[in-house]
């Protein structure tokens, strides 16, 4: 068996006195694409932030590529994995190319300046994500989907082979959603980039992941194939509400929460 990209054992994390994660254990295979699903407040984003070392867990072990996460220098960790936040409205005073170039930080030493190689890496990431055409635009003027692709470009510029994505497709319109999903699946399929995508939408999870892990109240409630996730009864117990399953023409299953009978 190959070393998993991420291995988590018995992870517990408290925020404001509440155990947001409570004994979570899971493996994410290298080159895999895993969707982390669950209702609001289940601890999905906290799990992602613990893996990215943005939030410090209370106890438990996280291994990245077979090595304890805590033993990485911050820069070394940044060359391996990158956190891509929700496309929020935070103010970023940079142009797209400047922002993407900042992703080269883990490759700089304190006294060095950016080299042509750094610029090439940033350009390659912008080409790969189709963001180079608006390289000179201020980030503030981008649409949500464009912004999401720019964030992915910056993560690739770091050299990260593991992307931790928080709701990568949720708040986008259909066209941009398809673009982002195709970009991510392409990175996973063609370049072996490991994807960990947090979402609260089971259809998004099916689009983004081969495997799914469902969290509920800070614990792993389900782990397995997407097809098993969509099977009768699983989503119901994750979200505590009945679902309708609809077969799409190409054979995929779409789900929808069932309205109460009127």
């Amino acid at each position: 068996m190959t070393t998993p990209a991420i291995a988590i054992r018995d992870l517990t994390c408290r925020l404001g006195g509440r155990a947001v994660l409570d004994g979570v254990s899971l493996d994410i295979p290298a080159g895999g694409s895993v969707a982390i699903l669950g209702p609001n407040g289940a601890g999905k984003t906290t799990l992602l932030k613990c893996i990215a070392r943005i939030v410090r867990p209370a106890s438990g072990a996280i291994e990245i590529l077979g090595k304890a996460s805590a033993s990485y220098a911050q820069r070394d960790l940044a060359r391996v994995l990158s956190y891509v936040p929700q496309a929020d409205a935070r103010y970023l005073p940079f142009r797209v190319s400047e922002f993407v170039l900042l992703g080269r930080y883990p490759h700089l030493s304190p006294f060095s300046s950016l080299t042509p190689e750094d610029r090439r890496a940033a350009d390659a990431a912008m080409d790969r994500t189709g963001t180079r055409e608006f390289a000179d635009r201020p980030i503030d003027t981008l649409s949500g989907g464009e912004r999401q692709r720019v964030f992915i470009a910056a993560a690739l510029t770091q050299g990260a082979r593991i992307l931790l994505l928080d709701e990568p497709a949720t708040f986008l319109d259909y066209k941009h959603q398809v673009e982002v999903v195709e970009l991510l699946r392409g990175l996973n399929r063609d370049e072996g980039v490991t994807l960990v995508s947090v979402t609260h939408d089971a259809n998004d999870a099916a689009l983004l992941g081969d495997h799914a892990i469902a969290l509920k109240a800070g614990r792993v409630h389900f782990a397995g194939e997407i097809s098993a996730l969509l099977a009768e009864g699983v989503l119901e117990s994750v979200f505590d509400t009945p679902f309708d399953r609809i077969a799409a023409p190409a054979g995929q299953i779409l789900v929808r929460a069932r309205e109460a009978a009127r």
Partner: peptide, 23 residues
């Protein structure tokens, strides 16, 4: 001056700065 890259990254917010490798 030596911290010029870090000052840029701090503008992105703590989560992104950490993710880019800033302590």
């Amino acid at each position: 001056w030596l911290a010029r890259h870090e000052l840029n990254l701090l503008l992105l917010g703590d989560d992104l700065a950490i993710s880019r490798g800033v302590e």
